[in-house]
Write a protein that binds this DNA or RNA. Structure first.
Lengths: 266, 266
DNA sequence: AAATAATAGTTACATTATGCAACATAAATA
DNA sequence: TATTTATGTTGCATAATGTAACTATTATTT
């Protein structure tokens, strides 16, 4: 009756490669990692076979091989992504405070930086927003949200910020009418000014401060008293600074004299 | 064709081909894969018969043959992140072929799309490149590579492509002198033209084709013969198309008449 | 820190399963 | 009866998997 070869009587037929591949990828996204031993056990095949599967998937860029198994594929680790974890809860609370200032339908500018990324997170489920940003991560994240329109300001990418800088980005700013801008900064100096690391960055933030309906600087407490080389011109036009805890009294005083209010999150 | 069949004795009677086909497809959509051994067992027919069934269904585009069985064929345009895995090895080989055309020091434009993302992967360890792109993912990935300068062309982000489109991106193109451009497309029509889904996309690719020193369209074989609504003007100025296997003869002939060469990867 | 054991990776080759093509058979059709 | 169509059978080429000996890496112990 059953022609072809003999056997195939033993147990359930061996899973074909694509089945294993699918399951492996499913486990990866749910667990983050897979182990060769576990997989070989689970599929009842040799480790060598699993190794070949993983190698195959790795060649397609679907995962990263590690000793003993594989992990989710991450294009490359960068300084930026590492910074992301630092002071995460402070940034999240700043993000929520910032989001509270945004109403549906607004045009929002989001600067590059990990704190502004937290603001983006907090805005993720808002309706009918228009986001302008120079940050690749923010653009990528926000464009995946329904009901959010995203404009990326182009230009040369600064690898440290993973964001557009330079003349193109500067000029693009002038094309937009922005209701509210959330800007980062390198430090909050003792005399109540936000300072920056680069000339380009300072100029960009200065222009946005002057252009936006309201501009807020978002700064976690690690920036208090830190000095970086460049002043941000026209900083006094900013509407306020949003921080995770109250800055030293001297800084508060200085800020009060200049104009921007201090918003302490949570 | 099918005579009236009163046999219907029991299910021991051999299923007719259309019955098997229906069941095979039903199993496919429920399980994602089918195995020849299992099916032969289930229908009590020879493996060769199942092979012929699967081949028949594959020719009609209803499934994809794999060693030992078949998998679901997904012709629909899935969301970008889901599309990433599809046809991954074809895209990887196209990526390598494309990278072989790039020499250190060049200015390279990379269009949006999953195939161009594969080109970016293949270029990742090159030295001293300048990358221009409209794709957020490509910009993010390449800016993490040392020795690579990245320019992001700004504009409104199309969520489906996760890339900048529209007037800003169009204008930004004219600022660059590009040595080689790798462009995507919606389909490779039977009369040897690359076609696109949107007017903006077609215009952008057309301009880049005319501007770049050399422009190549990267297309995996799922695009062969596919018709999408918009022609890409000046397509005949392209240097070539890079594909993962040789297109049907008619398409090759048509391309030959127009000008662009055909590069078959791997 | 050096030595050791345990685990994992590599390579090469043996074994098994699958694919393919050519031909054979049986039923349905003309 | 001849012809077509679907299926079965066989033999060989190819691909996937298993196995074993050996090397490399990681963990543990001293």
């Amino acid at each position: 009756m059953i022609a072809d070869n003999n056997m195939s009587d033993s147990q359930s037929a061996r899973a074909l490669a694509p089945r294993r591949h699918g399951e492996i990828l499913r486990r990866l996204v749910s667990d983050g990692t897979v182990s060769i031993t576990e997989l070989a056990d689970h599929f009842d095949v040799s480790r060598q076979t699993i190794r070949r599967d993983l190698k195959h998937l790795a060649e397609r860029g679907q995962l990263d091989l590690v000793h003993g198994g594989a992990t989710l594929f991450e294009p490359t680790e960068a300084a930026f992504t590492e910074r992301r974890g630092e002071n995460a809860s402070a940034k999240a609370s700043i993000g929520r405070a910032a989001a509270a200032l945004v109403r549906d339908g607004m045009v929002v500018f989001l600067d590059s930086g990990t704190t502004t990324l937290a603001v983006a997170h907090a805005l993720a489920d808002r309706k009918n927003l228009t986001i302008c940003t120079t940050s690749l991560s923010i653009a990528l994240q926000m464009c995946r949200q329904p009901q959010v329109r995203v404009h990326m300001l182009g230009g040369e990418i600064d690898p440290a910020e993973e964001a557009a800088v330079g003349i193109d980005a500067l000029e693009a700013i002038s094309h937009f009418r922005v209701d509210v801008a959330f800007l980062g900064g390198g430090g909050l100096s003792p005399d109540g000014e936000v300072t920056d690391f680069t000339r380009n960055g300072a100029e960009q933030r200065s222009r946005m401060t002057a252009t936006a309906g309201k501009a807020y600087f978002v700064l976690d407490s690690s920036k208090f008293g830190r000095l970086t080389p460049l002043r941000i011109p026209r900083f006094e036009l900013a509407a306020g600074v949003i921080v995770d805890r109250r800055p030293p009294e001297a800084i508060c005083e200085a800020l009060k004299r200049k104009g921007p209010i201090v918003i302490v999150a949570e």
